[in-house]
Structures are given as C-alpha cells and as structure tokens.
Nucleic acid binder design. Structure first.
Length: 903
RNA sequence: GGGCGCGUAGCUCAGCGGGAGAGCGUUCCGUUCACACCGGAGAGGUCGCUGGUUCAAUCCCAGCCGCGCCCACCA
C-alpha cells in the first residue's frame, strides 16, 4: 500500500494501459457495455491515420498527445468521447518498402520488362499484393502498439484500415458517384511523371528544389536561309528532340519577319514552325523560346493553341524512345542531355552556357527529377467540389486554430487544379472501371455491374477488363471521417458521431488531407467533417533544424519514453505546444518535466505518510482554517484556467497552470504551511487539513490526468479513501469546485504570509545569516489585523523563516537589526554580530533607489493631466494606490537607513 | 513574384495596449523527518531598428533589417 520511494514509470505505465484497455473505458458509448455508457453529447476525433507499416516519430507523439488530452478531458467532462483510430495503406510508400524488401531476396515485380538483375525472379500483381498483406500482418501492429505506449486512449475495438472491405466499398461508391456526376473523368493530359516509380503523381507530391543549373543557348538554323539562326535558351537540352515549334512574341520586332517560317530542328533534322504566341517574353533570354508540348506544362498550352504535334520522347523510365534519332534511343535523359550539348557544340550551334539558379521538380517519395508526360489519367474536378468547402470556412462552419491557417487553405482552394488520382502502381484501391473490347469504359462498383452495363451497351455479353491503375492514397483518406464510421451503410455510428468535433493535425497536410476531407464530407454527408481544425507545430531539434536521419538529429519518442516516461514526454510536448510556433525540443526540457512528475510522486508519498487520505465527507466549500480555504480557492482558480485553456486549444497554458499550482502553490507553500498543523495537537484542525491536503492532491491528479495519465492514475489508485474509489481516474469527473466563501480573503492573507516569509528569507540570505541560525522577529507599526495574522500563523512563520520568537518592538528599536518592510509593518531581525552595518546600509540604499525609480515613473504619469482625464478611472486609481504603496514603503526604508546611520 | 510566420533574460519560449514573465542554464547558501529528479536566495532584458497612432506601446499601424516556411513561375 505504501508508495515506493522511487517512481518506476515503465511497469506502472504498461500495467495501467492494459487495465484501461481491458476494462473497455476507451470505448465510445456505442461500444461500451450497456449500463456504462456516458450520458453526454458525443465528442469525436478521428485520428490522422498513420502509415500502417510506419513507426512512431516525434510528430506523431505530439499529434496524438494533443488528441488524447482532448479526448480524456472531454471524457472526464461526461461527453461520449470517441477517438476513432486506424491506419493508412499509404500506397506508394508501402509499395516502395515492400519492393525494397523483395529486392533483397532477389525478387522484383513484373513490369513487362526483363529482370533488372540476372537471376531475379519476377512476380505478378496478385503475388505482390499477397506479399504486401504479409508485410502488413508482420509490421502493422508496430505503430498502434507505440500509440498505446504513448497512452493514446483510442477506441481500439473500432480500429479501421483504409483497405478494409468496408472502407474499400466506400471508395468504390464515391468513385462511381462522382464519375456519374461528371466530377471524376478520364483525360489525356500532361501530368507529373515519376520515372523511378513509373507512375503519375499529383502536384502536391512534387517537391520544388533550389539548384544551380545551366542555361544552354542553342542556335536553330532558319530554313532556306544561309547562316541565319534563331537562338533559344533551355535548361533541359535533351527535350529539344521533342520540339515542335519556336515561339516569339507577336509584337517582337526582331522576329516579326520570321513568323510563319520554319527552322530546321538540329539533330532531328525536322522542320518546325516559328509561331507568334504571347507566352514568349521578349525580355527573357533571346526572346524566342523552343516549344516541347509533350514535356512542359506551358509548352503544352502553346501547342494546343497552335495545333502543334506533341512528340513524347521518353519511355516510362525516362529513357529516350523511338521518337528520337536512332543514336539517342535508349539513352537515359541525363546522358542524352550531355550528348545533345556535345553534338550541338560540334555543329557550332551552341551559342553559350550560363549558370542558372532554378527550381527543379522532384518526386517527394522517389527523390528523382519529375518529367511532365502526356498520359491517360483519372482526375477529380476539384474546382467544383472546392466551392462549398471554401464557403464553409468563410462562413465559419469550420474554423482553423490558429486562425491564420485559413489563409493558406483559401489560397490553395481558390486556385485548385484538377486532382490526378490514378497511380500506376499495384498497392491500393484499384480503379473501379472496366473496358470493353473497343475501349469503352464502364464505371461500376463491381465487375458484375460493369459486365452487365457492357452487355447492355454492346447488345451482347462480352468480356470486360479492369483498369489496372490504383487510386491516390489520399483519395481514401479523404473519406476517413465517415468511412470509418461505417458509411455507406446507415450505421448508428454515422448517425451519432458524424460530424466529428476536432481534427488535430500538422500544417503539412492541410492540402493533402484537410481540404480533401472538407470537399468529400460536404459532398457526400452534406455537412463539414469537423467544426474545428487544430493545426499544431512541427517538432524540430533543439537548434530548430528539421529532424532527419541524414542529419542524425532524430529524437525517437520511444527512446525518450524509455528514458523518462510517457508522462514526461507528453507533458513536455504539451507545455511547448504554443500556438503558431515550431517546437524546438531539447532533452533538457523533458528532464525538467520528468522532475515535475517525480515531484508529484513525492508529494503523494508525503500525503500518504501523514495520513492524508481522501475523505468523501470533506466539503471544500466549508473549511474553517484560512490555509485550507486558500488552497481550495487556488485549486478552483487553476481548474478554471485549465478548462478555459483546453477549450481554446491553449495546451501550453493548461500545462503551465497545473505545473504552477502543483509545484509552487501546493508543494512549496501549502505543504509547508500545514506541517505545523499536522505535527500539532489540534485534532480538529489536523483532521480538516489532512482531508484538505488529500483533496487538493486529488484535484492535481484530476487536472493533470489528460496530460500525464499514467502517474495520476497510479496515485489515484494508491491514495484511495478507506472505502476505495468509485472508479479509475480516467472515468472520473472533471473537477467542479464549488464556490467557497472567504477564498478571496484567504488568498490575501496567505499572500501576506508568503510576502513576509520571502522578505525575511531574502535579507537573511543577503546578510549571510547562517541558514541554520534562528533569529527573533520584532515588529513595529503593525495594525491590529497584522498582529492577528502574526499570531494566527506564528508557528509557520517561525518554521519557514527560521525565527525563534515573534513580538512587538519594546522600548528602543533593536540595535544592529536588519529591517524589512511588509505593508504597514517594519520588521526587525536582530542578527547580532552577524550584521555588517555597511553592507546593510548599502542594501537599504539600493532598495530605496529602486523604489524611487518606480515612484518617479508613477508621479510623472499621474502628473500628466491627459492621463488623469483620459485614462479609465480604475487605471488611474490603481496607479495612485501603487504610488501610495511605494511611498509608504520608501519611507520605512528611509527610516531604517536613518536608524542605522545613527549607530 | 504572391502569401504566412518569427525576431522578448545565456538557451528554448510564454505574454500582445496601462506594474517585463516561465522552464532550463548560471551564482551563492542548505543534506531537519515527501522529494538533491530536492529546498532557499540571487544575478541576468534599451522586449530587432526607425517612425506613427494613443493620455499610455514589448503589445496596434507603416517602413526597414535579419531569419524561417508555403505557393507560383523560371527560355
């Protein structure tokens, strides 16, 4: 029963987690056993689903700590809390991982090409998919296990996976419905092509990197004119083999005569036209620009306007294909680049080369340069879907916290481009489209339906083949807030928990995920998926660098949990989660908050050792002792602060409030104040104080629980009242502290004691009075109230300020005494030979000087007529009071100085 | 090019119209019976710069300087 001297978090944390999970307290109302359902309104959060094969990083730790705080807080408030967990199949990322693992075993997927290495085996699509599921079975529990270790109180019974049958059905239904409404369509367009992954990717998956490249200037000979050239600049020389025009500005005098003529494209030896197009900027380069419609987004538009041929010169791996001269065929694009430059140079057609700072598109997964490529792909008409999603945020139906992220959302949504959703990979939701023999497309939820539609179309039964593409992972993620609840079925969960309440996520996926959930939620459910989007910061290293493996500055949350405890890590992340700023995480901070957890543990040990056990009969509104009324009032204030902070997502304020109350108010002062009572012989006072101590500690456990659930649950259990607790802390009610009479007076009175003790301690230290030495305290000019307080708190003043006796100044003021001023009273501390007169005079003079500074500032302010007449009355009065206070205290110090000088 | 954010104590950061704050670090003192992962006391800041608004500006506005990020473009 007795608490161990040292707190051992590891065992305790895993034990409580298991007990919570086994007892079903994480469950929402609909998954709880009958009779144990919460009566309050639902409070729902859907987890940002981590990659099923991933592992917990610091971003997850922050993200899930904040969600868990909201869930635990609302659960304690009596809400029917649902934290819907699950994982994401992460199409490209997972496929890459599994392919890499297979490669180690000499296995690769059959892309219709020979094996890349001799002796490698090729596997077909079905076999590969089986391998991915195997890998999922093997590693899929890792991250959910780690979330458990962190303390995440998810409703695990409801765990979902984006490739579950139910969620897959939701994907198919959404695809079919959007297709039928014309909001999904197939089109041959220029898309971002990843030559390493052999798939199209969306604009968002392209990362622009700053590099210093080169600008090559080529001379293209004018057809039928000797030694006449037009110069074009390019950053990608190899694409010239796919040029189908040169464009000049229609108003550009230099080239006016050439428009309509041809140049002979060198190397390829093709005549291509010189066209006039406003895309060409006379200020840039030579003013003439080569046009490669199949490999550049701008050139593509120019090509459309002038009906130019589109020559695709690359294969799916970025090697040159049969559309280029034979000597270039089969070359890698960067090899071809060098060869083109060499060839042009040897023909005398390379005018110059310049360094050129530029941004180059890279695939965010593959890390290779993206090639715009003309292919057939599936697109979502996001422009149409975005409209209601923009309106919802404009109208405040969904709010972002911090608010400024709404700008980011608006900017992207108002300029949204069609979303390319098809991927030429194998792992993911296969596009529910089938093709007839002539290429006619039949979109349907099942093959049977597609076959039937085909039969009707052709007037006879015929075979259909399924589209081999899969959908962008984010397509299924976009449905997450309702697909996880059972949609498209009309489940009780959908009815009760949609719309959800808060989405907690990082700013890096506002476009990828938040925006798309808004669009899909509004379209399919008719309402926004959440009323609040809380955007948290990025966790960086202590120097503000992004954590990355290559920099070696990664802090692994699991390591930190092992070293310090989950409670400590959670508290640290919470205390640092101020809005709108990145978190620079130093292990020193975690250590500091680990100490806080230990402090709580020790305070509980103290309470236990002193028989401070929660008393169900204790009424915090009815304490007879000032010190107890004081702690009750302070607890009430803290509860109000924390509740307000959590309602407004000011997590750091909540953490700091409980820290301040627990460590400073409770441990530093209250426990010290009450020691004389507990060791005294007033049984009634003792009983009340024991109960009050236990009660205050309980409030700390309750208030701290959402942030640091483990140590609080452990202490809650260990510090149970004689009859035991009604239930675990996790399902206990959030404190609602009754209005108690006299708390303001108690706060004022104990504040005075704190001032007095602090003043005395201060001068003792400054005057080098030995810490162990007890000295008398003689008070002059004390009011009746002060005398009352001195006697009421005599014992604790003796103890805390190391005083041996308290009394009034009798006769002459003590010689060789240090003096402090507290309100109207001057306190003399005769320290005998210890005092150094010169040093004390110096101290007093400095004090007077400091106060003098404040006084002159205030006098100047109050002397300003404009201030007195225009500032609010209470502000003026406040300043007058402060001035009077300073003046009185300066006077006391002045007197003290005079007395010393007279010695 | 467009947008967003940030410059406050040695470090990391709160505060954001009326008395400059916290944690860590640092200095001094202290191991008495919850805790040295502790207790007590202290030092440390022209709140980036320059103007403006206001009775009053770290806080609001403008400009500048320095950092970071996002989006777009790039012949």
């Amino acid at each position: 029963m007795t608490l161990e001297k040292n707190y051992n978090p590891a065992d305790i944390e895993t034990r409580h987690y298991k007990a919570w999970e086994d007892s079903g307290v994480f469950g929402c109302g609909l998954t709880r056993a009958p009779g144990s359902q919460p009566s309050g309104d639902p409070f729902t959060i859907v987890i940002p689903p981590p990659n099923v094969t991933g592992s917990l990083h610091m971003g997850h730790a922050l993200n899930n700590t904040l969600q868990d705080i909201l869930i635990r807080y609302n659960r304690m408030k009596g809400r029917d809390a649902l934290w819907q967990p699950g994982t994401d199949h992460a199409g490209i990322a997972t496929q890459m991982v599994v392919e890499r693992r297979l490669a180690e075993q000499g296995v690769e997927i059959d892309r219709g090409l020979p094996p890349s290495k001799d002796g490698n085996t090729l596997i077909d699509r079905d076999t590969f998919i089986d391998k991915v599921w195997e890998w999922k079975a093997e590693s899929g529990g890792t991250i959910t296990g780690q979330l458990r270790r962190l303390g995440a109180s998810c409703d695990w019974a409801r765990e979902r996976f984006t490739m579950d049958e139910g969620l897959s059905r939701a994907v198919r239904k959404v695809f079919v419905e959007l297709y039928r409404k014309g909001l999904i369509y197939r089109d041959k367009r220029l898309v971002n092509w990843d030559p390493k992954l052999h798939t199209a990717i969306s604009d968002l998956e392209v990362e622009q990197r700053e590099v210093t490249g080169s600008m090559w200037y080529f001379k293209y000979p004018i057809e039928g004119a000797e030694n006449k050239y037009i110069t074009v600049g390019t950053t990608r020389p190899e694409t010239m083999l796919g040029d189908t025009a040169v464009a000049v500005h229609p108003d550009d005098e230099r080239y006016r005569d050439l428009v309509g003529k041809n140049v002979v494209l060198p190397l390829a030896d093709r005549p291509i036209p010189i066209v006039a197009d406003e895309y060409s900027d006379p200020e840039k380069g030579s003013g003439a620009v080569k046009i490669t419609p199949a490999h550049d987004f701008n050139d593509f538009e120019v090509g459309r306007r002038h009906d130019l041929p589109m020559i695709d010169i690359f294969d799916e791996s970025g090697f040159l294909n049969e559309n280029v001269p034979e000597s270039y065929q089969g070359l890698d694009r960067f090899v071809a680049r060098e060869k083109v430059v060499e060839a042009m140079d040897s023909l005398g057609l390379l005018e110059k080369i310049e360094d050129n700072p530029m941004t180059v598109p890279y695939g965010d997964r593959s890390g290779v340069v993206i090639e715009p490529r003309l292919t057939d792909q599936w697109f979502v008409d996001t422009k149409t879907l975005a409209e209601p999603a923009i309106r919802a945020v404009e109208e405040g139906t969904t709010k972002f916290v911090p608010r400024h992220w709404e700008n980011t959302y608006f900017e992207w949504m108002r300029n949204i481009q069609p979303w390319c959703i098809s991927r030429q990979i194998w792992w993911g939701h296969q596009v529910p489209a089938w093709y007839g023999p002539d290429g006619e497309v039949f979109v349907a939820e099942t093959e049977e339906e597609a076959a039937q539609a085909a039969a009707e179309h052709y007037g006879k039964t015929t075979g259909v083949t399924r589209d081999t593409d899969v959908l962008d992972t984010w397509f299924s993620s976009a449905l997450w807030p309702f697909s996880t609840l059972g949609w498209p079925d009309e489940t009780p969960e959908v009815a009760r928990y949609y719309q959800t309440d808060v989405l907690v996520t990082g700013f890096d996926i506002i476009f990828f995920w938040v925006a798309r959930m808004m669009m899909m939620g509004l379209h399919f459910m008719g309402s926004v998926p959440f009323h609040t989007v809380y955007i948290h910061a990025l966790v960086r290293d202590e120097h503000g660098q992004k954590m990355s493996k290559s920099k070696g500055n990664v802090l692994d949350p699991l390591d930190l949990i092992d070293e310090y405890s989950a409670d400590s890590l959670r508290f640290t992340l919470t205390a640092m989660a101020a809005q709108g700023r990145d978190i620079k995480l130093a292990t020193g901070r975690i250590e500091g908050y680990r100490n806080f957890i230990t402090k709580i543990w020790n305070a509980a040990r103290y309470a236990e050792m002193n028989g401070c056990r929660p008393d169900p009969a204790f009424d915090p509104a009815d304490c007879s002792l000032t010190v107890n009324r004081w702690i009750v009032g302070a607890a009430a204030e803290t509860e109000a602060k924390i509740s307000a902070a959590l309602e407004e997502f000011r997590f750091n304020d909540a953490a700091n409030a409980v820290y301040q109350f627990a460590w400073h108010s409770f441990c530093d002062w209250y426990l010290e104040f009450t020691k004389p009572i507990l060791s005294g012989d007033d049984e009634a006072a003792k009983a009340e104080t024991r109960a009050a101590t236990a009660w205050a500690l309980d409030q700390i456990l309750l208030l701290l629980h959402p942030i640091s659930p483990f140590v609080t649950e452990e202490l809650w259990e260990k510090l149970a009242p004689a009859g035991g607790r009604a239930g675990p802390l996790i399902t206990s009610s959030w404190p609602s502290i009754p209005e108690a009479g006299g708390t303001a007076e108690a706060a004022e009175e104990m504040g005075w004691v704190i001032r007095l003790v602090s003043e005395i301690r201060g001068v003792r230290a400054e005057m080098n009075v030995p810490a162990g030495a007890k000295i008398p305290l003689r008070v002059q000019g004390a009011s009746g109230r002060t005398n009352e307080r001195l006697s009421r708190h005599e014992e604790l003043i003796l103890r805390l300020a190391r005083i041996d006796s308290i009394g009034p100044v009798e006769g002459d003021v003590p010689k060789g005494a240090v003096q402090v001023v507290v309100d109207e009273a001057t306190c003399f501390l005769p320290v005998g030979d210890v005092i150094d007169i010169a040093q004390e005079k110096d101290r007093l003079a400095r004090e007077i000087d400091k106060i003098g500074g404040e006084i002159s500032k205030l006098e100047k302010k109050l002397g300003n007529e404009n201030f007195v007449s225009r500032a609010p009355e209470e502000v003026v009065q406040e300043n007058r009071d402060r001035l009077a206070e300073f003046a009185r205290s300066r006077e006391k110090f002045q007197e003290a100085l005079t007395r010393l000088s007279a010695l």
